[in-house]
Design a protein around this nucleic acid. Sequence first.
RNA 1: GCGCUCGUAGCUCAGCGGAUAGAGCAACGGACUUCUAAUCCGUCGGUCGCAGGUUCGAAUCCUGCCGGGCGCGCCA
Length: 554
Amino acid sequence: MTPAKLASTVLSAARAVFETRGLDVSALPEATTVERPRSPEHGDYASTLALQLGKKAGVAPRELAAALAEELGARPGIKSVEIAGPGFLNIRLDAAAAGVLARDIVLAGPDYGHTDTLAGERINLEFVSANPTGPVHIGGVRWAAVGDALSRLLRASGATVGTEYYFNDAGSQIDRFARSLYASAKGEPAPEDGYGGAYIAEIATAVVAEAPDVLKIGEPAALETFRRVGVELMFAEIKQSLTEFGVEFDTYFNEKDLHDRGELQEALDRLREQGHIFEADGATWLRTTEFGDDKDRVLRKSDGDWTYFAADCAYYLDKRKRGFDRVVIMLGADHHGYIGRMKAMAACFGDDPARNLEILIGQLVNLVRDKQPVRMSKRAGTVITLEDFVDAIGVDATRYALARYSSDSTIDIDIEEWTRATKENKVYYVQYVAARTASVARNAAEVGLTRGEPDAFHPELLSHEKENDLLKALGEFPAVVTRSAELREPHHVARYLEDLASAYHKFYDNCRVLPQGDEPITDLQRARLWLNDATRTVIANGLGLLGVSAPERM
RNA sequence: GCGCUCGUAGCUCAGCGGAUAGAGCAACGGACUUCUAAUCCGUCGGUCGCAGGUUCGAAUCCUGCCGGGCGCGCCA
């Protein structure tokens, strides 16, 4: 029995109680949940339904709990129901009802944890979005890990997801990039406002290799060549490092396309139709203060140029026109000032800013060695890059380390901690379970122990305390996935995997799976092998959601 | 000044309005002829920044204050 099934059993029992007592059935919620209590004295699962409904139904919570306990206790699979405190229901399951979960999980395989809770939602997820003037830097790395994990979570919950990387290959940043390349190719120092770092010299050399005459064609043409070829090379490198990091985007969106297709003008027209545009000081403004922004925003400057914000408006509209009803943008903490104007902009389009636009802000990350932030990058000067992270601790540890904390917290990623091969290094701790379960399965096969046919599985034999704990942990996985997806917080998955890993290690220490010596193979060992393999399934599925490998050997 | 965010054990952090607030590290003490000890078990450690409010019930929600981080351009 899964927690979800138990919860619906609780609800149906409540319905039966309400009907026999002539209570108002409309007080019942659509759905309810059961919790896994911290203390084993409080049963396998607990429901607070009686506490919640007592007042609504006009019955003392304890009295309602008593009636509910009696009704629920008679349902199949439920061993006992106790009332505690003000009206908690503490529920214990039959060992068999709890144990069948092991088989259900193995048979579901990669699908275990997938739900349809977000079915029908079309979500656009934009993250990283670094301009091609240098390698992906530290802020982008956090979003590469978290954003990619979130896209996997949303898909696992049934949403239709488009991941997107927005970039701009024109404008002053790119001009500085081109001038830096040009200077480097000529053997001159980088311009005052230019980009430093060894990568500039590498790209400059590569541009010269591709266009050998570039230094002889005059400055304007040379800068244009360095811009065009340099951006191409830089972007190829960014994509390459993201691919090696396990991150691919469905769409790479160039801001230039918005201009070329006249979408900024279209956005302006739309906003004007909605009545939120005004002219002042020769510029064209959007009255974002109408929707809570602290000042109005210029869309078109007095010199006729569009602002960056105008492109933001056009880009938002473009996503909405492509059918996405939720536009999610992941930004660094230094961009949190955008939230007000972006939300107001969505409202100006006539959208619901609370539903159609979500802006997720991630706090800063430091890569730390010996308690000191690493400030120097081999290739990028003072900017720490994705490849610095991967060089320091590897892809799996980088992805896991960045995904296991709430994005609301600033974090230090300690190189020593994340390269250690002990329990303190959480990615090893969790991956070790993947390796251990695989090892047990291999050894079982060698001695002729197999799970056997699903029908021959004896779930009631999984009655040891540690088996019970492990089953409860396994049962939580789908709810954890759903909650993480809805809250846009992948770190819950990582924390859950650590709990699950702990439960498995304890099971492993207390409950031997393989026969010893010449012992005959028993049904208990077969049942435990189902449990072992179910754990391997959930660990693999969970690590997969974070983009981390589940090794067979370590 | 305004806005966002954080404040939980010595340290790093979990904690959907529920029960006696948890985990790892650190400190101390145990378990290896191993189904992989990359593990497990135990001890020690807390006025959940402070003060009010809402609630049957608050670390969690609301308000104010204190402290840290970040941001407030007709820049991109």
